[in-house]
Design a protein around this nucleic acid. Structure first.
Lengths: 200, 200
DNA sequence: ATTATCTATAGATCTATAGATAATGC
DNA sequence: ATTATCTATAGATCTATAGATAATGC
């Protein structure tokens, strides 16, 4: 693996950052390579030299963000190792994402579009759900092991609920920011859940 | 208000039905008037005679579906008048929608796209959330009045949670149908909530 | 008179490729 | 030699309008 061509690497990073904003703003279908290229101050053909197609560019953006995000939640990270602390870490992720411009919007827009089979983000969205579900369910089970949560809870169902709550609140928040305090409502749900799952 | 030109009215209905499927399949931006027209067996110009622009067609589709749906949940309908029965009616709506092809997908795709200000569905999505939130919050308060739910609950926050759960599960279900039993998970949430809100 | 429909087309995109030129790194 | 760029362009869309013709309803 060669390192060189530093300007190329820098360009690629810059393209990813700009493309993220464009895909967030217009969705995959509505985004235009010409507009992205213009914002990077590069010709469209120049852009396509770095990413061979629009499809690959989207996937690259999603992978890029995913990698950064997985470091914030997941087994072993954030100091927590499962249980209530893990769920609170999830609430922290929601908090944090709300402050990165375009990020929540990218996920909402692409998840919406990607519902269609054949959409280039479809596989990514499916993978993301499965990974998240597995991580959250594992955190719940770890909580049971440690006696924080009552035995016999349905870890998968609660994981689904947590993820759905997170995604659903994000959409509401984006559509009507003044009406919903996404982070607070999600945190409230998490705390209620932690209390409800406490062993009798 | 004249009635006449029956074929025109029938055509309009047919266009709406086809457009719903196309918008559900490709989103607003990905849908094509030419393709919709072809499926209705009409020229593209013929289609635009009935709906003056793509934007108006989307809004017409959304309003059309909204009207049908509001009859299934909302104050006074479904036999219920608030409280636990209303929340269960909401679970019935989820059940029902899952069986109408394209319907859940239309809402998920358009809600995702509409997150962008300036999208023709933006206003619609905002209105839908506000109406739903008001209806669900009213149902929760009615439950308090009748002594089904404990006094002092935060009706708006629980309404937000219910709607988020509904929308989030729909997206998960569409992206990975085999992994999530949307209707069952939602019903589980509703039942848990009803139990949790019971007065001490 | 109004409505429904068509053909033709303007005008604006869009993605991706071909092929040339310049710069970088081993 | 590889990488980074560019201009030019093919080829495929797309939406919306102009203008003509036929059918419907009062």
């Amino acid at each position: 693996m060669r390192r060189g061509y530093a300007t190329g690497e820098a360009r690629k990073e810059r393209i990813l950052a700009v493309a993220l904003l464009e895909f967030a703003e217009h969705g995959y279908r509505g985004a235009s390579l010409a507009r992205i290229a213009a914002r990077v101050e590069l010709s469209q053909a120049g852009l396509l030299h770095h990413f061979r197609s629009k499809e690959r560019l989207l996937v690259a953006v999603l992978d890029y963000r995913d990698e950064l995000d997985r470091r914030r939640f997941g087994p072993g990270h954030d100091g927590h190792d499962g249980g209530a602390a893990a769920l609170r870490a999830l609430a922290d992720v929601v908090d944090h994402n709300a402050r990165v411009p375009g990020l929540v919007q990218l996920f909402s827009v692409i998840s919406g579009e990607a519902v269609t089979p054949g959409h280039p983000g479809h596989e990514w969205a499916r993978g993301r759900y499965r990974r998240l579900r597995a991580d959250v369910a594992a955190a719940l089970r770890a909580g049971v092991e440690r006696g924080e949560f009552r035995a016999g809870l349905d870890a998968e169902a609660h994981a689904d609920r947590l993820i759905a709550m997170m995604d659903g609140l994000q959409t509401q928040w984006l559509i009507d920011p003044g009406q919903v305090d996404m982070a607070a409502v999600f945190r409230g749900y998490v705390e209620d859940l932690i209390a409800a799952l406490r062993p009798a």
